[in-house]
Nucleic acid binder design. Structure first.
Lengths: 132, 132
DNA sequence: GTCGGCCTACTCGGATATCAGCTGTCCGAGTTGCCCTGG
DNA sequence: CCAGGGCAACTCGGACAGCTGATATCCGAGTAGGCCGAC
């Protein structure tokens, strides 16, 4: 029961991209170096984000990734869902036909966390310039 | 990023124990059968709960487990913490000396969920008699 | 009758096997910009 | 000069290896209650 490292990489990559003002595409290499990850691995993570439309990828020379225009709309929850998946954190594995009482409660607790994450946008971090 | 099955077993076991009115110790065998798990595996989970003082174990003939007296105080969060551990769900693996901006936000979201789980007691479920 | 030893039904805890998902690597394919060459 | 081919710098995506932690099993040890036999 932990967030995966991939989620961490995804969040940081999004921040890097959001803070890049050059309007150019940023290569995986550069992003990977800053986070000390292998470029190939990071590219897999970025591909997931691209599929969700949060970032845009460009092949070829001077290719790379850049943030999608709708930056203001991208919340932490979106990023986490893109990496971790959207399924519930709790599975009641007893094959109860009737709804498991625990599941309801766990689900509502989960919702509370998601609400909080939905209100946190990457763009807020950029404004506060919280990165070194 | 999922709650483990062990957590599910722990929650259900706690409910079974809480609903047992016989004032006797309930054997692992019985608990395991109801949840269709191996008794040895379940015993490891129950040992963790016992170490946290939520349940009491008794060796020997007619031994088993029974709920601790302070049932009213036992929340979902206590049970989850006993099984999953108490460490934060999010680790920022960049060795930033300064506090990572993400960690703060993730931690606060996590807290929201924990608050909810802290207010949910096993004893409430027993009262509502939500189990088949 | 009663005391003590044995047997049985339990839990406890360590060692180990198994499995799934996360992490990470490798490589071939596709794409694009740029240079270089031939007309 | 300039059009086209080739090259190099990229990403993309599938296949696969390694590792870690969750899941599960096995077994020996300890413990408590009850039975049974000897005195």
């Amino acid at each position: 029961m932990k967030f995966s490292k991939a989620t961490n990489y995804a969040l940081h990559s999004m921040l890097f991209l959001a803070m890049d003002t050059s309007n150019k595409f940023v290569g995986v290499q550069e992003l990977a170096e800053k986070q000390k990850v292998s470029p190939t691995y990071l590219s897999k993570i970025l591909t997931k984000l691209a599929k969700e439309g949060m970032i845009i990828s460009s092949s070829g020379v001077n290719g790379g990734y850049t943030i999608s225009r709708k930056l203001e709309d991208i919340s932490f929850l979106d990023i986490i869902h893109a990496i971790e998946g959207k399924s519930s954190l709790f599975d009641c594995c007893l094959d109860s036909l009737s709804e498991c009482a625990f599941k309801k409660i766990m689900l509502s607790a989960e919702k509370k966390m998601e609400e909080e994450l939905k209100n946190q946008k990457i763009s807020d971090l950029v404004k506060k310039n919280l990165w070194k």
